[in-house]
């Protein structure tokens, strides 16, 4: 019977990994602050990541599911969030004349997208669609490591590999040909706190930010999880004891 469990457990462990494709890429692995059962977000890194997103990525990539008010998780207060939001314009309306109009964004609004729709995005990017980044860390296997690897693996193609027009060589991308041009070269922006701005550093900050956009509830989830699992372990031990007490007179008469 134990064999059954072990086999099933092994299958379960193997299952999702088996389901993923692409075996020719090697991922760079990093220790992320949010990994593990006690993981948490690094606010400073996330703030830098937000800056990197705004200055580098937001020209092509939307962040559809993040509202400005969510940025409180990064450590900004209400006034700071209002300022960040006010830098953007969002569509509102119709007004009394029946027209749609643009107004400054409020904290309750979401990040506006760079393109009106997917077709417009494709038209502006050689037919390739720059995906929305809100969930990208969960939408790729080994999300955080994959994103970090992708951003830091733009290389010269080996030997005389043919690179089609509009494509770029990336060692971490399945098939190695990616439509996104290299976004980071190092020192692409200046961080307000003067932190390192190498390709690796900016990439790591972006990943810290994107891990949060994909799952803002991560910290709450893990903290609650510790309490719940501890409670259930205690309950299991207690109920085991109670069971032994109740069964004592029956067990006594068994071999």
């Amino acid at each position: 019977m134990k064999k059954l469990f072990l086999c099933l457990a092994a299958l379960m462990m193997a299952g999702p990994a088996l389901a993923a494709g692409g075996g020719d890429v090697v991922l760079k692995q990093k220790d992320w602050s949010f990994s593990g059962p006690f993981g948490s977000f690094d606010q400073a890194a996330m703030q830098r990541g937000l800056q990197a997103y705004v200055e580098v990525c937001s020209g092509c990539h939307s962040l559809d599911y993040v509202s400005f008010r969510n940025l409180a998780d990064l450590g900004y207060n209400e006034a700071e969030i209002k300022v960040i939001a006010a830098q953007y314009e969002v569509e509102d309306g119709p007004n009394d004349d029946g027209d749609m109009f643009m107004r400054a964004a409020l904290p309750a609004d979401r990040f506006p997208a760079p393109y009106a729709n997917q077709n417009a995005a494709r038209a502006a990017n050689n037919g390739a669609y720059p995906p929305d980044l809100s969930l990208i860390a969960k939408a790729r296997a080994n999300g955080p490591d994959y994103l970090y690897s992708l951003l830091t693996s733009y290389e010269e193609a080996p030997g005389d590999t043919e690179i089609p027009e509009g494509m770029y060589y990336n060692a971490a991308y399945s098939g190695h040909m990616i439509a996104m041009p290299q976004p980071l070269y190092g020192d692409d922006l200046t961080y307000a706190d003067g932190a390192e701005s190498s390709v690796e550093a900016i990439s790591a900050d972006l990943v810290a930010f994107l891990a949060w956009t994909a799952e803002p509830a991560l910290e709450k989830r893990k903290r609650t999880g510790v309490a719940v699992v501890a409670f259930l372990l205690i309950l299991s031990v207690m109920s085991f004891g109670a069971m032994r007490f109740i069964w004592a007179d029956v067990k006594k008469s068994k071999v």
């Binding site: 379960m12 299952g15 999702p16 389901a19 993923a20 059962p37 969930l135 969960k138 939408a139 790729r140 296997a141 999300g143 994909a214 989830r221 893990k222 609650t224 999880g225 510790v226 719940v228 699992v229």
Partner: peptide, 13 residues
Amino acid sequence: FFFPNFLGHPDNY
């Protein structure tokens, strides 16, 4: 609480 997406598939995000 600790592996919520382990049994799922990333493509569904």
